[in-house]
Amino acid sequence: KTVHVNGVQYDFDNPEQAERFAKEMAKKAGLQIQFHGDQIKIE
Rank of each mutant, 00 (worst) to 15 (best):
R20W: 11
R20H: 09
I33T: 03
E16L: 07
Q17S: 09
K27Y: 13
N14K: 04
K27W: 11
A22R: 09
Q9W: 08
A18D: 00
K1G: 04
K41R: 12
K41W: 15
A29Y: 15
V3P: 01
H4N: 08
G7L: 02
E19S: 08
K1N: 09
A22L: 10
F35D: 05
E43P: 08
Q34L: 11
D13V: 04
H4V: 14
E16A: 09
I40S: 04
E24F: 13
E24R: 10
E16W: 12
P15A: 13
N14M: 03
K27D: 11
Q17H: 04
Q9G: 03
G7E: 01
G37K: 08
G30N: 08
G30K: 03
I40Q: 05
D38A: 09
L31Q: 05
P15E: 12
K28W: 13
G30P: 01
D11L: 13
N14V: 03
Q9T: 12
G7M: 03
Y10D: 00
K23T: 10
G37I: 06
F12K: 01
A29Q: 12
M25N: 01
H4L: 14
R20M: 12
Q32K: 11
M25A: 06
A26V: 03
D38F: 13
K1M: 14
I33N: 04
P15I: 12
V3F: 05
K41Q: 09
I33L: 08
A29D: 08
Q34V: 14
V8W: 07
K1R: 13
V8N: 03
K27P: 01
E43I: 12
I42F: 07
E43S: 09
L31T: 07
D13A: 07
A18K: 00
M25T: 03
G30Y: 05
K27S: 12
V5S: 01
K23R: 14
N6D: 08
H36L: 13
V8Q: 06
G7H: 02
D13T: 05
A22E: 01
Q34S: 13
K23H: 09
K41S: 10
V3L: 06
Q9P: 09
H36C: 15
V8T: 05
E19R: 14
T2Q: 06
R20D: 06
M25E: 07
Q17C: 15
G37Q: 08
F21N: 00
Y10E: 00
Q32G: 06
L31I: 07
L31G: 07
D38P: 07
K23W: 13
H4W: 15
I33A: 04
A18V: 02
V3C: 11
Q39T: 13
H4Y: 15
F35S: 05
I33R: 02
G37E: 08
T2K: 04
E19Q: 12
D38L: 10
A18G: 01
Q17T: 07
D11P: 03
I33G: 03
Q9Y: 06
F21G: 00
D11Y: 15
Q17F: 04
L31D: 03
I40V: 06
A22W: 10
F21E: 01
Q32H: 09
G37T: 07
Q32Y: 05
A29N: 11
D13K: 04
H36D: 12
K1Y: 15
R20T: 10
D38N: 09
Q32L: 11
L31N: 08
D13M: 06
K28I: 14
D11V: 14
F12I: 02
A26E: 04
Q17I: 06
D11K: 14
I40T: 04
L31P: 01
F35I: 11
Y10S: 00
K27L: 14
K27A: 13
P15S: 12
I40M: 07
K23M: 12
P15T: 10
N6V: 02
D13F: 03
Y10I: 03
V8G: 01
K1Q: 06
N14P: 00
D38S: 09
K23A: 10
V3T: 01
H4I: 14
N6H: 08
L31A: 11
V8L: 06
K41A: 09
P15Y: 13
T2C: 14
F12Q: 00
E16Q: 09
K23D: 04
I33Q: 03
I42T: 06
H4K: 06
Q39M: 12
K1L: 13
G37H: 07
E43Q: 09
Q17G: 02
A26G: 03
D11Q: 13
A22C: 14
K23Y: 14
Q34T: 13
A29T: 14
E43N: 08
A29C: 15
M25H: 02
K27V: 09
N6F: 14
K41T: 13
A18Y: 04
